[in-house]
Nucleic acid binder design. Structure first.
Lengths: 194, 194
DNA sequence: TAACCAACCGAATGATCGGTCGGTTTTTTT
DNA sequence: AAAAAAACCGACCGATCATTCGGTTGGTTA
């Protein structure tokens, strides 16, 4: 692996676990074996380094969901949404650092001053919400879903799923056994009566 | 207001908006007009200062919900839960800094090494979940709520409501008009069919 | 081979940080 | 009023931080 990629990989872990200000370039240097001068040769400063990390996070998350979506063309809407929720929970486990990064505060603060940062975050959340909404729209047509506003429902649904992932990350409670309840809630939220 | 309280008030704002490492004692000194020596006279170090801030946050949140609960003795379970959700959204607006603090990452990281910090966080989340669960339990008895596991449902419900507050805080999207959809989702989640 | 260039190095720098300390002022107690 | 205690002050300190810079290396091109 090139030094540049090694730096990006370690930076992702450090930024997500220790935050922006909690990540020291000297520590990153020690972990990757790259001199501090090398880091600043590849990235013009710390913020630029994080922006590149965030870009990688965006790419990998978008890739994962694109690939997932292509395998779910022939399902009913409700099943699609349930599949997306399950996949989201799965990804939150396999791409722990990337999801942790999105649960931190500093990227959203940086987005207030950095248009590039804001653009990355918007791409990620737009993609996620679009996928939820797509399933809901399809479900409205095939009758498996009954809701008023697809977009708003997608946002509430996303807030719920992501909220569970957050509860699980912080381990204030054992939210591990919560996935079944989450799926039940998901189905209730999308269907009418019965 | 005493210097000590002025320090606590400003520290709450700075910690919640700029994070732990992003809050400089010199800045806190400048804002409050207290010399840095004075700050360290009242609090033995930066972490101790934050622990006192968190304690205040805990007290005020617990007080608010205790007072709210006393006015809702004679309602049906479902109405109680809906009232709590509305009150939670209301508080997230009036106590913005306190809720923002709980949405940051560093208190949970500190909880891994500081039992005091962990205790405060547990008190807050236990209180909130208990209140949700209480309403659900009551609803199960009076028939206004139909769910399998009250505790798990309370956690999913809390994750959903808190997730919406988070979406609103970070303003990636205008989640302001989402409260109606949230209440609909809340009702669907708690009731069976019709 | 000579010239070039991107990747790489690590000591040095100036700014900033949390925390200390010796002292003064204000309040409380006796 | 005298003494004791608590609140308060700000210059100072050592550590740490992001970033710079002059120089080396190794591969590619002319």
């Amino acid at each position: 692996m090139s030094k540049r990629n090694a730096i990006l990989a370690s930076a992702t872990r450090l930024f997500s676990r220790n935050g922006f200000q909690g990540t020291a370039m000297a520590e990153l240097s020690a972990i990757t074996g790259a001199a501090t001068g090398t880091i600043f040769h590849h990235f013009k400063n710390k913020e630029d380094l994080f922006l590149n990390v965030l870009n990688d996070v965006k790419q990998s998350i978008l890739d994962q969901f694109d690939r997932h979506q292509q395998t779910r063309r022939d399902q009913k809407g409700l099943e699609m949404v349930e599949g997306v929720v399950t996949f989201y929970l799965h990804l939150a486990g396999t791409m722990e650092d990337q999801f942790l990064l999105l649960h931190r505060h500093f990227p959203f603060k940086m987005a207030e001053t950095s248009p590039v940062c804001r653009s990355h975050l918007e791409s990620i959340y737009t993609c996620l919400l679009d996928i939820f909404e797509e399933g809901i729209q399809k479900g409205l047509q095939d009758g498996s879903v009954a809701v008023d506003s697809p977009r708003k429902t997608a946002m509430v649904l996303f807030a719920m799923v992501d909220g569970i992932v957050r509860l699980n990350t912080y381990r204030v409670y054992d939210a591990g056994a919560l996935y079944d309840s989450l799926m039940v809630a998901c189905r209730r939220l999308l269907t009418k009566g019965r």
